[in-house]
Design a protein around this nucleic acid. Structure first.
Lengths: 114, 114
DNA sequence: TGGACATGCAACCCGGGGGTTGCGCATCGG
DNA sequence: CCGATGCGCAACCCCCGGGTTGCATGTCCA
């Protein structure tokens, strides 16, 4: 079990890294609000080259945040929430641990100030 | 309101970036489970130099994920959950948007396959 | 069939991140 | 007062990520 948590770290880090870029995060947001979109569409409002967008989409795909399917002559990208949930769970876990640690600390302090 | 969302992106990206490093993420985890710790302590199980750890802690502090206070001759770092909550909210928001988009798409498809 | 439109691939540039070492300064404790 | 402990700062190295341009390939459609 503790080993599965260790795996969670190695799994979560690249995930956060993928989200830790303004361009990629805005791509994720666009996909989340507008649904599946082809590369050119995603490029349009991005202010950068199609190649750059493509690279970012590949990066997102590499960590499983995004999937793509070829439709005709265009390649459509869509979100995959599974990985997003992993990230969420990780953050929730950290919060919970911290709260617990804080509680222990508080109890300890109050015990020793008699 | 939509402008505040735009700000959220510029605020969330650096945050995820800070979490997107194995070393920093493990530091966050240690702080979350063991409570506030000084640099040397955090360095011990990290397998790297104190300087490296210091840099990472600074990085975490720069985005507000961590705070530090000088106690005697050592500097103690502790988590600050406020930023974590921002990240969580961002992920929740993306999930919700995507679900909504998916629902719209499904409705659209089913309408047009009579 | 010919010309748009949507991509894929590869070479190239540049800046910053992650890590280390060396040295100097303050604080603790006997 | 002196040695040990805990840090801060700065110089240095190396690699990879983010962007661009140029060219080739595959699809659509009139």
């Amino acid at each position: 079990m503790s080993s599965s948590r260790g795996g969670a770290l190695r799994q979560a880090a690249p995930l956060f890294a993928a989200l830790g870029d303004t361009t990629r995060l805005s791509l994720v947001r666009r996909l989340s609000t507008e649904g599946p979109l082809p590369i050119t569409r995603l490029t349009d409002g991005s202010g950068m080259t199609r190649q750059a967008v493509t690279r970012h989409l590949h990066a997102l795909g590499k960590v499983g945040l995004v999937r793509n399917a070829k439709e005709g002559r265009e390649r459509v990208f869509s979100l995959d929430l599974k990985r997003l949930e992993i990230a969420q769970q990780y953050l929730d876990n950290v919060s919970a641990q911290w709260d617990a640690a804080a509680a222990r600390l508080k109890a300890f302090v109050e015990d020793n100030r008699s």
